[in-house]
Design a protein around this nucleic acid. Structure first.
Length: 508
RNA sequence: GUCCCCGUCGUCUAGCCCGGUCCAGGACACCGGCCUUUCACGCCGACAACACGGGUUCAAAUCCCGUCGGGGACGCCA
């Protein structure tokens, strides 16, 4: 529950923020949201957004992942001003920092073996006592410590957490005043025995190096913050402001991950399923953040203007995705936002996305950019209202762009097969339309209605039958609009082929 | 287990700091209606929540305490 807000405290001249993913997989929606928040904060305060790849976990980091993250951000339109920097390039800095801490007495060598520590930890767990390193090596005489090191005895470097009472305090922009007792913090390792730095150290050193003023990251970093503040202090560096973002969980309140959720949590999945990048950004930004005026749709500039870290919720939010849902392949809200943009954005803009889909499906016609441009825009505008994703243009909307379209099962059964007489009627209507003087809305509608009335036919049956055979769908825009858009030649041809869809044995 | 965080409709959330205007508002989803010889859009309407228990108060979603529930952090991972 929100009790108090604190000031964002933007007092430094320049805001510098960063998104620092570790490249151990594709960009997922949780990471993307963190990136978006950082990006918005930077843009809002005319600051600098830095991309830093934390690739020091060489076991798991891959170049495919790095590329995937870059592609994902680019697709979303999240542009960075500096980087990508690579943490692995700064290992020297991290070691230097560890040496400085050692020299200044803020850190010490620890010769305890992993086995010894594991045993102590296990013992503590068994006794149900909280485990904390017992500081054995902290009490080692400095000369003795140096001697052992010179001898080549393997050791790690531990940070010497100040002893005695006292606490580390900081004010998180989202979570408010935080305090952690020093006695609850163990002397954590900052450098491995092989001389490589650990995350807590390298992350802080890099942030200092990059001049980060605001650390905006997931809430899982909240518990790390006191230890990192200790590092900043020991290094004599200014402490940045921290803002932790609530996590995104699934319906079972589990943290979302590739392992358990698969592709739906990957940014590229949305790209491949017909999402407009901005719609995804809009959905993601609303997952844990809201304006107080209930606005839900924003242009880029409006979002930047409206965004504030203070509107970020403290409660974890849930990605409302039901595996196996027949109707919604992802969070319904995400789909509705996507549909909203599809039907409301400027047609010219939408056209560029539709073009990509058509190209991919090999349905693109270069004339759609030239002499058929008007027609193309008109068709998109005509059919977009009922579409939820860009893919709908090449599935439900296929008949507008190709002669090779399937007749949807429902349309086939209900609107065609059930009425055998259409087999004879529709080709006759084709002849009638073929002779029409002009091919426009009024003329076509008049011709069809005259045809129906003249033969005393059921208009619903005929109209639905035409729709089914000509568009392959049982639903769609007003029929006459469809016919005019599809064109006389195609309509006539399609109507004449009606008999082909009836099984031969039913022929009279 | 220890430390920390969180808890308003199914979901995202407004309201909470500065108690009354909240028998709790919006959006998505769901259901019904209007529109449409289709479906969608649009419009109208319905359903639906202050985790629980104690206090404080004339009055509590809002303040205090406790309980329960959920999450995170406790590595020579990042």
């Amino acid at each position: 529950m929100r009790v108090s807000h604190c000031q964002e405290g933007v007092t430094m001249n320049e805001v510098r923020v960063r998104f620092a993913p570790s490249p151990t997989g594709y960009l997922h929606i949780g990471g993307a949201r963190t990136a978006i928040y950082n990006w918005l904060f930077a843009r809002k305060h005319k600051g600098t957004f830095i991309l830093r790849i934390e690739d020091t976990d060489t076991e798991r980091s891959t170049s495919e992942s790095i590329q995937g993250i870059l592609d994902g951000l680019e697709w979303l339109g999240i542009t960075w001003d500096e980087g990508p920097y690579f943490q692995s390039a700064n290992v020297g800095n991290h070691r230097d920092a560890a040496s400085r801490l050692l020299e200044s007495g803020h850190a010490y060598r620890c010769f305890c073996s992993k086995e010894e520590l594991d045993a102590k930890r296990e013992m503590a767990v068994r006794k149900k006592r909280p485990y904390k390193y017992d500081r054995t090596c902290r009490r080692l005489d400095p000369d003795e410590s140096a001697r052992l090191a010179a001898e080549g005895r393997p050791h790690v470097i531990r940070f010497a957490v100040p002893e005695g009472p006292g606490s580390v305090r900081f004010s998180d922009i989202v979570y408010g005043d935080m305090e952690r007792n020093l006695e609850d913090i163990e002397d954590f390792v900052i450098l491995r025995s092989d001389g490589t730095p650990l995350y807590l150290l390298s992350n802080a050193v890099d942030d200092i190096h990059d001049g980060i003023t605001h650390v905006i990251r997931g809430q899982d970093g909240l518990a790390n913050t006191p230890r990192q503040i200790l590092i900043y202090e020991a290094l004599g560096a200014p402490i940045p402001r921290f803002a932790h973002m609530p996590l995104t969980l699934d319906l079972k309140k589990q943290k979302i991950s590739k392992r358990t959720h698969g592709e739906v949590v990957a940014v590229h999945f949305y790209r491949e399923h017909g999402f407009l990048p901005w719609a995804l950004v809009n959905y993601l930004v609303l997952l844990g953040w809201h304006t107080s005026d209930d606005r839900e749709f924003f242009t880029r500039d409006e979002l930047i203007e409206a965004f504030s870290l203070e509107g970020v919720s403290r409660a974890n939010s849930i990605f409302n995705y039901q595996p196996g849902d027949k109707k919604f392949f992802t969070d319904p809200k995400a789909l509705s936002i996507n549909a909203h943009y599809i039907r409301t954005m400027p047609v010219e803009e939408l056209a560029a996305y539709v073009r990509e889909e058509l190209e991919e499906a090999e349905l693109w016609n270069a004339e759609y950019e030239t002499e058929k441009r008007e027609w193309f825009l008109h068709v998109i505008d005509l059919i977009r209202a009922r579409y939820h994703t860009l893919k709908d243009f090449i599935s439900h909307g296929r008949a507008y762009f190709s002669e090779h379209y399937a007749i949807e099962e429902k349309a086939l059964k209900k609107n065609l097969l059930r009425h055998k007489e259409l087999r004879e009627i529709l080709p006759r209507l084709a002849d009638c339309l073929d002779e029409l003087e002009s091919w426009d809305l009024v003329g076509v509608e008049q011709a069809v209605r005259d045809f129906i009335d003249g033969q005393g036919l059921d208009s619903g049956m005929v109209i639905n039958g035409i729709r089914a055979i000509v568009t392959g769908q049982s639903v769609g825009p007003g029929l006459f609009d469809c016919l005019v858009a599809i064109g006389r030649e195609q309509v006539v041809t399609r109507l004449r082929k009606t008999p082909l869809i009836y099984p031969p044995e039913t022929s009279a």
